[in-house]
Design a protein around this nucleic acid. Structure first.
Lengths: 118, 118
DNA sequence: TTGACATATACCGATATCGGTATATTATGT
DNA sequence: ACATAATATACCGATATCGGTATATGTCAA
């Protein structure tokens, strides 16, 4: 077995920085491939391949317009990632520190009351 | 060039589901390696290797205790991921829908006023 | 010191990747 | 019909990965 395919997950697809760059660009609106080629300074085939990966995990969608393919973002497919990291938010967010202190205090009081449940 | 090393990024490290599982387990508190081996149902060497990757991107830290290595979470290293996806939150969050409608309305009014800047 | 336990590392084979180059496909304009 | 533009696909070489197996390292206990 090797590493999981990039097309397995949003997690795997988004691990590649170029693909994150593409999503960031599309966040501002629909774009044809050549726009992205210029923006990334990467070869056209490479960009097309990255877009294929993003399509396969449903992070982007395409619309044909003449000989151009207009790519647009589908941010919803990032939700699983967001949901997962969100759970760790308290690790760095000061907003939770007060709450944590309160909980700690409650726990201490409970302990001071002794273990008897009567 | 090949795919970026798993130890490049939190993004790359976390793309592997086993490693996410490990972090989830450590979120509940410090654990020795063997605990994780049981939890994941994976070979001990494999777990050790996943832990190495997580260490290298600073997602976990170790503490020696006798012949055991107690691993603990360092959630702060997930912040870059959180920050990145957070920007896309409006794509699925209803909370933003009202705001988006307002902005859309403003844009329409601006357009109705005509393009002359006098 | 000898043996058992806990963990890390070395090596292997299979595989999917990434950028590059060349080429196929489809649409437009003349 | 022909050339050109926009995009997709095929092929290549290099590489890092993942699980598996075997082994090294270090610690405790008898």
């Amino acid at each position: 077995m090797a590493r999981a395919a990039t097309t397995t997950d949003a997690f795997n697809a988004v691990a590649e920085p170029r693909r994150r760059q593409i999503l960031d660009a599309l966040a501002e609106g629909e774009r044809p491939v050549n726009d992205l080629v210029e923006l990334l300074g990467l070869g056209q085939p490479q960009v097309s391949k990255h877009l294929r990966v993003l399509r396969e995990v449903d992070l982007v969608a395409v619309r044909e317009e003449g000989r151009q393919r207009m790519y647009r973002l589908n941010g919803q497919s990032l939700k699983p990632i967001h949901d997962w990291v969100k759970a760790y938010e308290r690790s760095w967010n000061e907003r939770f520190e007060v709450l944590d202190e309160v909980l700690e205090e409650l726990k201490k009081q409970e302990h001071d009351n002794g273990g008897d449940d009567a």
